[in-house]
Amino acid sequence: MEKFSYVNATSLEQVTSLLSDSGWGEVMVIAGGTDLLGELKEYIETPKTLINLKTLPGMDSISADGSGLKIGALATVADIAMYPEIQNHYTVLAQAAGSVATPQIRNVGTLGGNLCQRPRCWYYRDETVDCLKKGGELCYAIEGLSKYHAILGGDPVYIVHPSDIAPALIALGASLKIVGPEGEKTMSVEEFFTLPATNPYRENVLEPNEIVVEVQVPHPKSNAKSFYLKAREKGAPDFALASVAGVFEMEGNTCQAASIVLGGVAPAPWRSTEAEAALTGKMITESVSMQAGEDAVKDAQPLNDNAYKVTLTRNLISRAAMMAAK
């Protein structure tokens, strides 16, 4: 890694003020560090200063009541996965968090870090490759090896968003709170992420001097079932080839409402309104669930090596819907 000075955060004002002194990359925040230190070791990022957020009090707590969850951005992925209320009532979130990486990484990685993590794309992570996302001319995945890249929403940068927790939160209708020098603002987790067509250089709407501080998750309806299905090449650690976060409000095996968000197939967690529409108000059968899957991927634009993701995504959606119907 390049040298950097390391500063403990004392308050949100101090943090946003330090971040405001420069643009992207000069001063960066570090929470768990499991993604950021990886980037520093590969010289993808070379900040002069790291601000340690872990010294900010109270930002790692999880609290739950009848109306929902409040999770501090510094809560670890492990804490989220093991929280009883989350395991019992927000199953998709517990499963997503439990599927992240390895125990070592879950113990240290934070919610904020998981949402804000950068792509795993092997062109992006290669210091010598001047890819489009890093300010260059070309997305190398287009003509290159695209087995792990996007089939939806890619143009012009075909990374996939690596987070498991993000699709789960969006499926649960979560929102998050951002703090900047002007104060705080709240938005849905869905709105937090952006597609490359809007901004090829970043994956979310954060300004350089803003940080995520908290996520709020409304309590699912009493008749809601939720799952996180993650297709991988090896058991762990492995990022998703494709994943489905599904929340299904069921009446018997009729789906009254569904929230289906895909991971590993698009540059942002991908809310499939098409799949949701195909299931809403329907009795879920094999063919209904398959149709939902087909609808979800009908506009997919695979690259040279990732057409299999189209089939895989369709099948995962079908599987999730069938699980809801049981």
Binding site: W122, D126, Y140, E143, Y148, K234, G235, A236, P237
Partner: peptide
């Protein structure tokens, strides 16, 4: 699981690490 990936454009190995060069684990 195991396969070395070479990128024709850059002539570089794409998975010179233990993230994308995958060896069996406990699962």
């Amino acid at each position: 699981l195991e396969e070395r990936f070479m990128d024709a454009q850059t002539g570089r190995m794409l998975n010179a690490n233990l993230e994308d060069y995958k060896i069996p684990g406990t699962f």
